[in-house]
Design a protein around this nucleic acid. Structure first.
Length: 782
DNA sequence: TTTTACTTCGTTTTT
DNA sequence: CGAAGTAAAA
């Protein structure tokens, strides 16, 4: 019997409502994961539901992971029989078994956005579409939103109504789908769309999964698109035990196809639905909640809710308007520094949020100068790096020879004299013989006019075929090593660019680590599985705020997270909300932007500081932005320094003495300057008032700053993704006996230093000799 | 084929 | 302003 004592009345009601459609409107910080996990435990323990019949869908791997552990904590190992996964992995699991019904092979690969663009480039070339007028991305976005709303190629073609742009997109859509199919590849949207199609065309398959998943819950329901709605609808259609959880006020992914109507109209679609609102907040102080409530109340398309807490009012929200973006960054970093020094805050209590990634740079620069450890979340994905994509392309080619994007990426990387001319000949041959590119390559002997390239092609083909054969014996990590060896890939990287080679090599090493970890941990490791994991994993999943770093991220990335101290930077009309939103005639755009502000505010547990700059460089021109309208929607009495009871007016802001209340202005400033020798830039000898003019020559300092960042980062061991200052000391040396979680004990026979880590060779008592990376293997000296 | 000069274009991005 | 992509030159 599960224990529900620590649930509030609404949560309890949600847990106990197990039959029929249920809509849980879960405000920010209202304990929705807790409610969902209890609900699952209740189903199993009190209603005797077989875990096998439960499906819990989330959007992110991270959310799925968290829910899985929490359910396991409550119900034990039985929990592993529940499907707790993302939309995309759910669908891939289903498609791996049945996609042959739709004419694809079961070993299909998944294309990421880069791959999509490559395909679209080819499509445009083939169809003579001028990519000046029609950008690949624009076309792809149109296709993506068509797929999101389940509009097929033929339906799209029929709905162009003579609109020339749409006609072009329709042609591109058709060709794009054909190319993907030829490559036996799916894009992210296809993963959902094809599953829906599979179910619609094969009632017996649908029925099988309907019987399997008698109880379904969907998290972050406000972010679902039409295709996902349809998928869930189909699955739940038989038993109608569908529980959706979401917060319409946190719907911030419209631009990616999320349809807020799914949650707003749930009751209309399921008239028999029970609706429960979770409004008690367990995260933030009342002041923060009041601010959030006040802002979001300006939205019209929403279900009215109001967050409250049984805890106290807490600290007021601090607002500071600085003269320019440099001072904004400096002020924030100063405050971070002093709050850690003087209060009991630690770096991992703190997050700096902003609207656009570009804003991170200035803040980063100041953090580096202060030697404050930080991590920037988002930006470039690990798997988007060229060297990683190369390695993955080799793996994809081994896995799925039809994958033309992968094959063409590596066919001449590293250089093996198979140039465009040769590739074109091969493609012609493939077209005539109705074969794939790889098929043509295998037949290189029968193609005339290839000249010397013929032998090179066959070499390449046998490399791939050999690796395919050896895969079983040497594993994924082994294959990767073999690729590097056979192609002399590291030499290639060094030839490319001497400076970045070390970084790139260590990235590849990291990929090998990941492969090793995957093979050690997965139930049934396979190349398919590894590629899937790689395709469906993002940086966001690896956010770690326990390693003593300040986190910098966009407001979007912050959804679902919480921090004791939050800074929201750049709250200016023109930046947040952005210019495009302000000038858009569609009020729903502004409402979405406001929801983003709501998400930002509700991330804060104890302290919320909002900043903006009067002057800021944007797109190469200096802009003078007024204070964000969202800030003005916060009642004045909640803001530090404001006259209680008054709404703030624009003129009020200009009167704010934002120096007040920040305890260490003068001192902190001059410290940081002296130590790094930037005094010259300041007008008044390192004793700035809050109204200090901007740097005399902000740009002149840049080159110095850039190299300074590199140096400081190197000294502090701060480069992105590296645990805070720990690469170095091993607790053992050659000859020591160590213990591994899985392989047991063994003797260290060798240690070699890698750019980022140690490679340790261990002769295990029971498993033979293994080479592993120290940071992953977690070896302990015994 | 590779380097270099020039143009273009600018939110957010769970998978 | 600066990244990224493209066209032209070597």
């Amino acid at each position: 019997m599960a224990n529900y004592d620590n649930l509030n009345d609404q949560q309890k009601q949600a847990v106990e409502t197990t039959r029929g459609p249920l809509l849980i409107l879960a405000g920010a910080g209202s304990g929705k994961t807790k409610t969902l996990t209890h609900r699952i435990a209740h189903l199993i323990h009190d209603e005797g539901v077989d875990p096998f019949n439960i499906l819990a869908i989330t959007f992110t791997n991270k959310a799925a992971e968290e829910m899985r552990t929490r359910v396991r904590d409550m119900v034990g190992p039985e929990a592993d029989r529940i499907w707790v996964t993302t939309f995309h992995s759910t669908c891939i699991r289903i498609l791996r078994r049945h996609i042959d019904r739709l004419g694809y092979d079961l070993n299909f690969t998944v294309y990421d956005t880069d791959d999509q663009k490559t395909v679209m480039k080819n499509v445009c070339k083939r169809l003579n579409i001028d990519t000046k007028n029609y950008k690949e991305r624009t076309i792809l976005n149109a296709i993506s939103s068509a797929k999101d709303s389940l509009v097929s190629v033929s339906e799209y073609s029929l709905s162009t109504f003579g609109d020339f742009t749409k006609i072009v997109i329709a042609r591109a859509y058709k060709e794009y789908q054909e190319q993907l199919k030829k490559s036996n590849a799916l894009d992210f949207d296809d993963i959902i769309v094809l599953t829906v199609q599979l179910f619609k065309e094969n009632p017996e398959i649908l029925d099988f999964y309907q019987e399997r998943f008698k109880y379904i819950s969907v998290d972050e329901y406000q972010d679902t698109n039409k295709a996902q709605f349809e998928l869930v609808r189909l699955l739940a259609d038989k038993y109608r035990n569908l529980c959706v959880v979401g917060d319409d006020d946190q719907s911030i992914y419209k631009f990616r196809g999320a349809n807020i109507r799914n949650i707003l109209d749930f009751e209309e679609f399921y008239p028999e639905a029970t609706v429960i609102k979770l409004e008690q907040n367990y995260r933030s102080t009342q002041n923060i909640l009041d601010a959030a409530n006040a802002v979001i109340a300006n939205n019209r398309s929403r279900k009215v809710k109001s967050l409250w807490t049984s805890e106290g009012a807490g600290h007021k929200i601090r607002f500071m308007q600085l003269d320019n973006a440099y001072e904004e960054a400096e002020t924030i970093v100063d405050e971070i520094s002093s709050s850690v020094r003087r209060d009991d805050a630690s770096y991992n209590d703190i997050a700096v949020l902003y609207r656009t990634n570009a804003q991170a740079r200035l803040i980063e620069e100041r953090l580096v100068l202060r030697g404050i450890p930080y991590n920037v979340v988002g930006g470039t994905n690990f798997y988007a790096r060229a060297e990683i994509k190369d390695m993955i392309a080799y793996l994809k080619t081994i896995e799925n020879g039809l994958d033309e994007v992968a094959l063409r990426r590596i066919i001449n990387v590293p250089k093996r004299s198979i140039g465009t001319v040769t590739i074109d000949k091969l493609l012609d041959f493939a077209e005539i013989t109705d074969d794939s590119l790889f098929g043509a390559m295998q037949n290189a002997d029968n193609i005339s006019g290839l000249g010397k390239a013929g032998a090179k092609i066959l070499n390449f083909v046998s490399l791939i075929e050999n690796l395919r054969k050896e895969l079983k014996a040497i594993g994924i990590a082994g294959v990767l090593n073999a690729i590097i060896e056979a192609t002399d890939y590291y030499e290639y990287l060094k030839d490319q660019d001497e400076d970045s080679a070390d970084d790139r090599i260590s990235n590849v090493d990291e990929l090998i680590n990941k492969a090793t970890v995957y093979e050690e941990n997965a139930e049934e490791p396979s190349l398919t599985g590894f590629l899937e994991e790689v395709a469906l994993v993002s940086d966001i999943d690896n956010i770690d705020n326990t390693d003593g770093r300040v986190l910098l991220m966009t407001l979007h990335s912050a959804k679902g997270l919480e921090f004791p101290r939050v800074y929201i930077a750049g709250m200016e009309d023109g930046l947040f909300p952005g210019m495009a939103t302000i000038s858009s005639g569609d009020s729903s755009d502004m409402e979405e932007e406001r929801r983003l502000a709501y998400v930002g505010i509700t991330r804060a547990k104890e302290y919320l500081t909002i900043t903006c700059a009067k002057m800021r460089m944007l797109h190469g021109e200096t802009q003078f932005n007024p204070v964000s309208r969202f800030v003005k929607e916060i009642p004045g009495e909640l803001i530090d320094g404001m006259v209680p009871g008054s709404k703030i007016s624009r003129s009020d802001y200009d009167e704010i003495d934002y120096g007040r209340g920040s305890r260490n202005f003068g001192g902190g400033y001059s410290d940081s300057r002296r130590s790094y020798g930037y005094d010259e830039g300041y007008a008044n000898g390192g004793k700035p008032s809050a109204r200090l003019k901007s740097y005399a020559t902000p740009d002149a300092r840049k080159p110095a700053m850039q190299s300074e960042i590199k140096n400081l980062n190197a000294i502090a061991g701060l480069s992105k993704g590296m645990p805070a200052g720990n690469v170095g000391e091993l607790s053992f040396t050659t000859g020591d006996t160590v213990k591994h979680r899985k392989f047991g004990t063994g003797v260290v026979t060798g240690i070699s230093k890698e750019p980022r880590d140690y490679k340790v060779t261990v002769d295990f008592d029971d498993y033979g000799t293994k080479i592993m990376y120290a940071s992953f293997a977690k070896l302990e000296k015994v």
